[in-house]
């Protein structure tokens, strides 16, 4: 069974962390992953940096630019992850924009992911329709779960379609925003979390965007299965490098 599906069956709220590969230092990828697992993180999204990340706010943009300046490439990332399954057992997802993946070659990319032991992909600018028509078969052949996003503006009908095409979980964007834009959840988010919960979808939801501390993590996971922290963790890396990852994680979830 895919590691993501397995993890989703555990009886607890899941904490997932996003970081940009190649940041703060080119070769930090493995250290960060091992520390995250050791700290009790349930799942990781490894960001493949892109020159033009149009769904991301300033924090992730800056980390992507820095990672590219450090020399990060798709090939380099695969090389860094080559033996990762010897030390890291939690589900690993690669999150990246479509163009670098397209240039690598979709099938080659999927094949490489499967060899390494990547469990899923999140490609924000690969729309549902194009995925199902052109790429679903390849993803499935290599055992990769494709994770779709929904937002407060997504219509009920489209949420049903996304649920139908999903595997693993649904990435629930907390509010109409780019990453790292908001620091707290108001009534509108609360209502949205409840509304989605009441839809009783086939796939569990994991909330992302706007989660930065214990309070927002607890709120986000009141209804959802888990939550993803991205920008706040990048800020931690900016300030501390790869040190004290454990203490960052412990303050999110005791």
């Amino acid at each position: 069974m895919n590691r993501i599906s397995h993890k989703l069956q555990e009886d607890k709220k899941l904490l997932s962390i996003y970081f940009t590969a190649g940041y703060p230092q080119l070769n930090d990828t493995k250290t960060i992953l091992e520390n995250l697992e050791k700290s009790g993180v349930d799942m990781v999204e490894i960001g493949l940096p892109f020159s033009d990340p149009l769904a991301d706010g300033p924090t992730i943009q800056a980390s992507s630019t820095q990672a590219l300046n450090n020399g990060m490439t798709t090939e380099k990332l695969f090389e860094q992850l080559k033996d990762i399954r010897k030390t890291v057992t939690i589900p690993l997802i690669i999150m990246g924009y479509f163009n670098p993946i397209l240039q690598y070659g979709i099938e080659n990319f999927c094949k490489k992911c499967a060899e390494i032991g990547i469990d899923g992909l999140i490609i924000p600018d690969l729309p549902l329709e194009v995925y199902t028509e052109e790429y679903q078969a390849i993803f499935q052949q290599y055992g990769l779960q494709n994770i779709f996003l929904i937002t407060p503006q997504t219509s009920e009908k489209r949420i049903q379609q996304i649920d139908e095409a999903s595997e693993g979980f649904i990435y629930m964007v907390s509010s109409a925003s780019i990453t790292g834009a908001k620091n707290s959840f108001g009534d509108a988010q609360q209502a949205y979390f409840e509304r989605i919960d009441q839809m009783k979808l086939q796939h569990p939801q994991i909330v992302g965007f706007g989660i930065s501390n214990a309070e927002t993590f607890d709120k986000a996971t009141q209804f959802a299965k888990g939550a993803i922290i991205g920008s706040a963790f990048i800020k931690h890396l900016t300030e501390n490098g790869t040190l004290q990852i454990e203490s960052f994680i412990k303050q999110i979830r005791m």
Partner: peptide
């Protein structure tokens, strides 16, 4: 060569890694 920029599949100038 072929790629995606600003939401459209088209010709664009990019590195071999797909960075614009």
């Amino acid at each position: 060569n072929d790629g995606i920029i600003h939401g459209s599949k088209t010709l664009l100038m990019q590195s071999k890694d797909g960075q614009i």
